[in-house]
């Protein structure tokens, strides 16, 4: 009886955490939608951005996939070999739930890979792609 209660409580807590994460992620997406003046984003455009090979940024990082691999469900590696947890939300539910962290990494990595800031539309598409996998 006690055991069942523990399982039920844990399940409720886990579902609660996922719901909270989803709410936070949706709020971040809504923010980008408002900035971009659009009502929705494209996972396919996000995938194209993720896979694109670029020359405008820093030579060592021509693409998102340079470090994150071509499948965002995989674990990636930084250039010095440190593990990067998967970008896909299905594999890593904490992704895109902390607005400051999201902005910090879009800032750094868009400048490293593209040589410029990403637009709110690109950020929204990127997150939508990561939610679709």
């Amino acid at each position: 009886m006690k055991f069942k209660l523990i399982i039920a409580t844990t399940a409720v807590a886990l579902v609660g955490a996922v719901v909270a994460a989803n709410t936070q992620r949706d709020a971040i997406l809504s923010g980008y939608a408002a900035q971009a003046g659009v009502s929705g984003f494209s996972a396919d455009a996000g995938r194209q951005l993720f896979m694109s090979q670029n020359t405008g940024g820093k030579p060592a990082t021509p693409s998102c996939s340079t470090c994150h691999t071509s499948d965002p469900r995989n674990v990636g590696h930084t250039r010095v070999g440190k593990v990067i947890q998967p970008m896909a939300v299905s594999r890593n539910p904490e992704r895109f739930t902390d607005p400051a962290k999201v902005e910090k990494w879009f800032g750094r990595n868009c400048r490293s890979v593209l040589g410029r800031e990403c637009t709110p539309t690109e950020k929204g598409n990127f997150i939508t792609y990561m939610m679709s996998l």
């Binding site: 820093k58 060592a60 250039r79 750094r108 990595n109 400048r111 490293s112």
Partner: peptide, 10 residues
């Protein structure tokens, strides 16, 4: 912003 080939701005 030029941190060993990457942008590591804080």
């Amino acid at each position: 912003s030029n941190h060993f080939g990457e942008d590591a701005s804080l």
